[in-house]
Design a protein around this nucleic acid. Structure first.
Length: 511
DNA sequence: CTAGGGTTAG
């Protein structure tokens, strides 16, 4: 008769050499023999389920745990919570988490990290609750919270977390520092991000890549390139992510020749083969510049598997340059690959609407209805006095709705006198022109900006975030507000940042 | 004898 320790050592040994099949087989044998697996064996198995995303086996183990009263053990439960979160079963993780009698720091951290990916507000709520319950966060917990702030783009929380880190003298190690660079950049301040970067004593390739990426999505291509050269002169080797960030920076800043040179240098000087992400950046770079023929030639010549986002990049370029013929080619590939993504239909309808082809717009709308696809609703949020306010189109649920609409209508009047003409092509619904205009006037971006105008002190930038790409009319509107109202506006959209100042945008209308 | 952390393409 073998005891639990013997089994445990065996499973641990198989896990160490990566022989997962034997781990599972041994586990089944344990159950057959009626032996209760111990608190060392179970986390070991659960971690295997996590790494292999094997939710089914994870459930089986969870049942064993419940049956044998092992749910009182920290290590077992923490590993299960972790396994569920990494298998995208956050609700299951939370269910178990809520039933744990005493949760240690690691368990809290796992749960906070889980929400950073799907509901970052909840992760900040949990962070507060954890501290209320007397737990003192360590460095790993701080990295997790920093990451949650980055995902959320919540600048006031970012500053609070930064203060907390300084107050408690956490040393800025390479991981914490890199996470903070990312946090500040994604909260809208590439300057704060750079300050952290400059303060760090140790930087690795991820640190450099994060900072280069930050310059890229803030539209500061030149700084991204400068930093890349600095990286090379420090003897740091770039990797494929560095190049994605660098090429992205070039494309979003319209640095065509530089981008082409870096793309060629990948293989020639750094022995890194471009993958589909690098090609996507190049299609975007060439496409935006109007070199659609070069873009499609590059696509046809590449011998890397083509994916959804590659074709999207081409389609986006067709939209900018109103190339209907190529748009249809891109659309065919796209709808063939991913007929279930409503975003593609919306982009296509936008393209056809812009070209005045209303019968095509109607056809795509019908296709969406038939396939039961709904446009993802747009949301814009803004932080005021440590609170987040969220708006949707035509939203009147805000307590200050009346004041918001009043200022918005006044601003629109002022802008119209300065030459603003609403572009109703961005309204896809088949409604009267007048209704279209009303919908456009109350887009979530505009409501949030109007609220910012009445609640954010003069001189401070109005920072808003949107879940989708900023709409073209709202982009024009924001530029004009920045000039006419003399307010700078920072918009984080689904792809990048726009800094509006004195009538122009950092993206150079190149987005 | 165990555990939790950072970058990237539309």
């Amino acid at each position: 008769m073998r005891d639990t320790t013997t089994w445990s050592v065996m499973i641990g040994g198989f896990a160490k050499v990566g022989d997962y099949a034997s781990c599972y087989a041994t586990f089944r044998e344990i159950l057959r023999c009626g032996v209760t697996p111990d608190n060392y064996t179970l986390p070991c198995l659960v971690r295997i389920c996590r790494d292999r995303k094997d939710l089914r086996m994870g459930h089986v183990i969870h049942c064993v745990v419940l049956k044998d009263g092992l749910h009182l053990d920290h290590f077992v439960c923490a590993s299960l919570v972790d396994m569920y979160t990494k298998c995208a079963a956050v609700d299951d993780a939370r269910w178990l988490f809520d039933r744990m009698l005493s949760k240690d720091l690691v368990t809290w951290t796992v749960m906070i990290a889980a929400y950073a990916d799907c509901n970052a507000y909840e992760s900040l709520v949990l962070f507060d609750r954890m501290r209320e319950e007397g737990l003192v966060p360590d460095k790993v917990a701080m990295v997790t919270v920093v990451n949650a702030c980055a995902k959320l783009g919540a600048m006031h929380r970012a500053k609070f977390v930064n203060d907390y880190i300084l107050r408690n003298s956490f040393s800025l190690d390479v991981i914490l520092g890199t996470a903070m660079i990312d946090m500040f950049a994604k909260c809208g301040s590439v300057e704060y991000a750079r300050e952290v970067f400059d303060r760090m004593k140790e930087r690795n390739v991820i640190t450099w890549s994060s900072m280069i990426a930050a310059y890229g999505y803030h539209g500061r291509g030149k700084e991204a390139i400068d930093l890349f050269h600095m990286m090379l002169s420090c003897g740091m080797l770039p990797n494929r992510v560095t190049f994605v960030s660098l090429l992205y920076a070039c494309s979003h800043a319209g640095l065509i020749e530089e981008g082409l040179r870096f793309f060629d240098s990948m293989w020639e000087e750094h022995a890194i083969r471009p993958d589909v992400k690098h090609y996507t950046c190049m299609v975007d770079l060439l496409g935006r510049a109007g070199r659609l023929d070069d873009a499609i030639r590059l696509i046809e010549a590449m011998n890397v598997e083509k994916d959804e986002r590659l074709w999207s990049a081409l389609l986006g370029a067709c939209r900018i340059h109103k190339n209907m013929e190529l748009a249809e080619k891109a659309a065919d590939s796209l709808l063939e690959l991913h007929p279930q993504n409503p975003g593609h239909y919306v982009l296509l309808s936008n393209i056809y609407a812009k070209a005045g082809k209303w019968e095509k717009v109607a056809r795509f709308r019908d296709m969406m209805t038939q396939r039961n696809l709904k446009k993802v609703p747009g949301w814009t949020w803004i932080e005021v006095d440590n609170e987040t306010h969220r708006f949707s189109v035509g939203d009147r649920s805000h307590p200050q709705a009346e004041a918001i609409y009043e200022i918005l209508m006044n601003v629109i009047k002022k802008l119209e006198m300065a030459g603003y003409v609403p572009d109703t092509d961005f309204v896809l619904q088949d409604v009267e022109e007048e209704v279209k205009q009303e919908m456009l006037y109350t887009h979530s971006e505009k409501l949030a900006i109007a609220f910012g105008l009445i609640s954010i002190p003069d001189g401070d930038p109005i920072r808003i975030s949107k879940n989708l790409r900023v709409c073209g009319d709202c982009h024009t509107f924001s530029k004009m507000v920045s000039a006419v109202m003399r307010r700078s506006i920072v918009v984080r959209d689904a792809n990048r940042f726009h800094h509006f100042r004195e009538g122009s945008c950092s993206c150079g209308d190149y987005w």
